[in-house]
């Protein structure tokens, strides 16, 4: 297990280095922040001073080396706009995005698993067909549109739930206060929509496949109750693919929370990155992308470990 972990960590490091290069060069190619940041009526000398101050006068490879050197000290540059460390800026916004993504994941599981289970157990019922049709909508409707609809119906017309901001927070978390929690509901549902559909489909196909296995028939031949067969023998087997996919999806949920955060004015990393892209605030963009890469790496690692906890076959190989 330790050998395996070390190997995985080394691989992750390589990915991180490669990504930092790509991100750095990519962002460099996007545009010239000088045009946006420095007021058009500044004179030549002022421009030159600003460019030197931002470190933009050096060649690209030198800028990259400086960036790596600083990154190793935990310094991902200062925001051109806020004149604050980029990393700190992003970390401040992180809890907001995290709780949004986790809220969406919780919804996806709470809604998707039971619906998928039902659709898998009664594939020919009208309910199952409705669920499957709904899941297609979940896949295909654009997030921003659904977000707007949610706001129209639940915030504007019915007035049940707030539609913008995080509400009250406790230690930086909304879900710890009733008011914050109510703010979290609509954006979470919005972000969860795609994942609910995913969980429904995964669960349903998992259930249908597993039901045909000999070990399920054997479990029934042992005289186990229907519930025991479904909730222990079938469920435990489908949990493996579902946990894997939901876990891996956490990264992309965080990455794609950009749209939901914009619609609901949720002050998270996604909103920050959109604003930063608008003004080409390079250090923030680079820092954001690096953090997302790091997050994907960590999530994959955690999912691997959870996978081995759930599936005894993987566990054994890991030890060997």
């Amino acid at each position: 297990m330790t050998v395996y972990l070390l190997r995985r960590l080394f691989q992750s490091l390589l990915v991180l280095v490669a990504m930092s290069l790509i991100v750095f060069v990519g962002v460099y190619a996007v545009g010239d922040p000088v045009e946006i940041l420095i007021s058009p009526d500044a004179d030549q000398a002022e421009r030159a001073r600003a460019i030197v101050a931002l470190g933009l006068d050096k060649p690209l490879w030198q800028q990259y080396l400086v960036f790596v050197q600083n990154a190793l000290r935990g310094d991902l540059g200062r925001s051109f706009v806020y004149n604050e460390p980029a990393l700190q800026l992003i970390l401040q916004k992180m809890p907001a995005t995290m709780e949004l993504a986790l809220g969406a994941t919780v919804f996806a599981i709470l809604v998707g698993l039971p619906l998928g289970l039902y659709a898998g157990l009664h594939p020919d019922s009208g309910g199952a067909k409705a669920i499957m049709a709904g899941s297609i909508l979940g896949f295909s409707l654009p997030t921003f549109w659904v977000g707007l609809m949610l706001i129209m119906v639940f915030a504007v017309q019915l007035g049940w739930l707030p539609s913008t901001g995080r509400g009250d927070t406790l230690w930086g978390w909304s879900f710890l206060t009733p008011n914050g929690l109510s703010h979290l509901v609509l954006p979470s549902i919005n972000l969860a929509l795609f994942k609910i559909s995913l969980v429904i489909r995964l669960t349903r196909s998992g259930v249908r496949e597993t039901m045909l296995m000999d070990y399920v028939k054997f479990a029934r031949a042992k005289g186990l109750s229907r519930n025991r067969v479904t909730y222990v023998h079938v469920f435990k087997n489908i949990l493996i693919p579902v946990v894997t996919v939901v876990g891996l999806e956490l990264g992309s949920t965080i990455a794609f929370s950009v749209v939901t955060e914009s619609v609901f004015a949720w002050p998270g990393m996604g909103k920050l990155i959109i604003d930063s892209i608008n003004v080409l605030d390079r250090p923030v963009i680079v820092a954001y992308l690096m953090i997302i890469v790091l997050m994907f790496i960590v999530i994959n690692l955690v999912v691997d470990i959870m996978y081995s906890v759930l599936d005894p076959r993987v566990r054994l190989e890991g030890q060997g």
Partner: peptide, 24 residues
């Protein structure tokens, strides 16, 4: 159900498939 596995038991052909892989 109360007879199955109790008064009448069954054994299947493929032993690799009859036991649930994720349960001890």
């Amino acid at each position: 159900r109360s007879l199955r596995g109790n008064r009448i038991a069954m054994i299947f052909q493929d032993p690799m498939m009859t036991l649930n892989p994720v349960l001890r």
